[in-house]
Nucleic acid binder design. Structure first.
Lengths: 338, 338
DNA sequence: TGATTGATTTCAAACGTTTGAAATGATGTA
DNA sequence: TACATCATTTCAAACGTTTGAAATCAATCA
């Protein structure tokens, strides 16, 4: 009752009057162990709720069975949804997941990688911060033979790596086409930070859709924001006010931004507010609560992205020695009309 | 280059031609170690980026330096914000945090506790599921001498435990009073699941505020929902339609519910929609995007709750042997007027 | 009978760290 | 010279597990 002896292999061995290794082998179903002993061992182990000590195990096999995940922000539904896919699969395979938030700051990201290195994670899944252009802190993993999966954000400066990404080009292409089919000829594109490569991928989808459908491109219908509210307002000002023919539709990099945009237009009593069609990336559950929800959402299926990322990572961890070509997995987007 | 030897104490010892224990003691600043040796050891360790193997360390000190957190859902901002406080402090003290989501299901919660037990976490912080009335799975921790902190949700059936909670009574009292001061005499209260004890605490705040301000209580102004949308609609139907004098103000258990409520009233063209004042618990960032935001929010400061929970937990972990009276920490709510 | 086989169990080293006890060796003291 | 003192270093066990090699013992075969 007072200080209880922990239930270890040694403890079981003493109780049964056999050696530690027999107990270990019995529990691990070694064929050389007598059926009867095996049964007795397993029975007692179950009775006493024996669970192997993870630290000892990890020390022995030289693995931590822990994987690190770095993402910008858990308040962002995209990333929160992605970890659902990660934890699901990781848990099923005996891996723990440690999540770190970089808040889109490079220094915080570097700190987290060091922390993970100290913790000897077996691998890393990362959505890089919007300021990550130098990959020294991440190359450390590669040098140690630890696999890294880049997911959710495209590290366009880093070519030799595994990636799991939304097919953001396709998503934006289809959204643009949808708006064109609906009759729009003046569609604005509000991109995210220029440091995030998705901003440019989506732009390509946008412009290709325009071209393929013989809609003239107008540079004054394109603007960018760094996610900052102030910055977004400025971009909207440029797109909707500082122009002779304002757009009749808007595609935004993120619904978060889209909401900022609409809010700004509304508070300025923009006359065309209700006749404009809005589409953003995200498909937040929250949308259904808006009086006038956007025309459509671009669903990026972040759960799948997390799922694919962890699957690839565990594969890499298991076959560390063999050569493995760099993968680039793209998950298609879907349009959801509200 | 090919298979690099890991940098261990042994490796450093060999390089320096001294014993492993000297290296260990030098790094840990034992006073018996010669200053010169200490310097040489530390220098080489830094050069070779030595980091002690966590598994070996943990095995030695019989701790995992890992704490488990169980919460219903990361999509819920309250809990997401709470982990901010937890990770912040835990990280600073060398602890890893593993997060598990119960999705408000008891079975999932039980599975998670078993997983954490297997992983030999040093302690647990949990926001119990709305269906948790039996605490056997959590008592296992107590029996093993592992501290458990109940946070965010009040386990009213479990008296002997540490709790860190929102002062939800006070929050609801003040919200009610605010509405009364604004002139409301018919204030409705929409509670959450009856299994969640906050539902009743808030009700007490509500009714005491009514009494203290000489506003008559009317039982037909009280309803409950289990968070399910359908269920909420039904409750709203009861409160606003199945009554001769509908309420002029509504306090909801959660802003999530409040949005469902407003949405329902709007889609039914409820005539008093715009003359009703709404208040909910939460203060979601999202609110600013609503055309007609609620009159006010009750901010519960979940970061503080997480922060207090982890602080208490680490305290308990460090002084495991001494007696420690059960704590009940209450964090006050604040009203935020929009 | 002595050797071989086979089934089963045990030994012992290893993983990387910590730490009290023991060893070393130089210096000072009687 | 012999011995105690002191600073410094090393030894060795321990944490709990895995696993190839060695040991045990009974049964079988020649």
């Amino acid at each position: 009752m007072s200080t209880k002896t922990p239930v270890t292999l040694k403890f079981l061995a003493q109780k049964l009057n056999i050696s530690i290794s027999t107990v270990s082998k019995a529990l691990n179903d070694y064929p050389t162990i007598n059926d009867d002993t095996r049964k007795r061992v397993k029975q007692l182990a179950a009775e006493l709720h024996f669970t192997p000590n993870k630290s000892a195990l990890n020390l022995q096999v030289q693995k931590s069975y822990t994987i690190g995940v770095i993402l910008p922000d858990l308040m962002d539904h995209y990333f929160t949804r992605s970890i659902f896919g990660i934890e699901q699969f990781a848990g099923k395979h005996g891996y723990n997941v440690i999540i770190g938030q970089s808040y889109d700051e490079l220094q915080k990201e570097i700190d987290l990688t060091n922390m993970f290195l100290k913790n000897r994670v077996d691998g890393l899944i990362i959505a890089i911060s919007k300021n990550t252009q130098n990959f020294d802190h991440l190359d450390k993993f590669k040098n140690l033979g630890l696999p890294v999966i880049y997911y959710g954000r495209n590290p366009s400066f880093n070519l030799s790596c595994h990636k799991v990404l939304s097919n953001t080009y396709q998503g934006c292409y289809q959204a643009t086409e949808l708006l064109i089919k609906k009759g729009h000829q003046r569609i604005a594109y509000l991109g995210g930070p220029k440091m995030i490569s998705f901003t440019h991928d989506r732009f390509k989808g946008y412009i290709n859709a325009l071209n393929d459908n013989q809609v003239p491109f107008d540079a004054s219908l394109v603007a960018y924001t760094n996610f900052d509210q102030q910055n977004t307002h400025q971009a909207i000002q440029t797109l909707f006010y500082d122009v002779t023919h304002p757009p009749t539709a808007l595609i935004a990099f993120k619904e978060q931004i889209l909401f900022d945009a609409i809010k700004y237009l509304r508070s300025n009593n923009y006359p065309g507010l209700d006749h404009t069609d809005y589409i953003g990336f995200g498909n937040m559950p929250f949308i259904s609560y808006l009086d006038k929800p956007p025309f459509a959402s671009i669903e990026e299926n972040p759960e799948s992205i997390g799922d694919q990322a962890i699957k690839l990572l565990l594969q890499l961890i298991d076959q560390k020695e063999t050569v493995f070509p760099y993968q680039k997995i793209m998950i298609d987007c879907e349009l959801v009309i509200h």
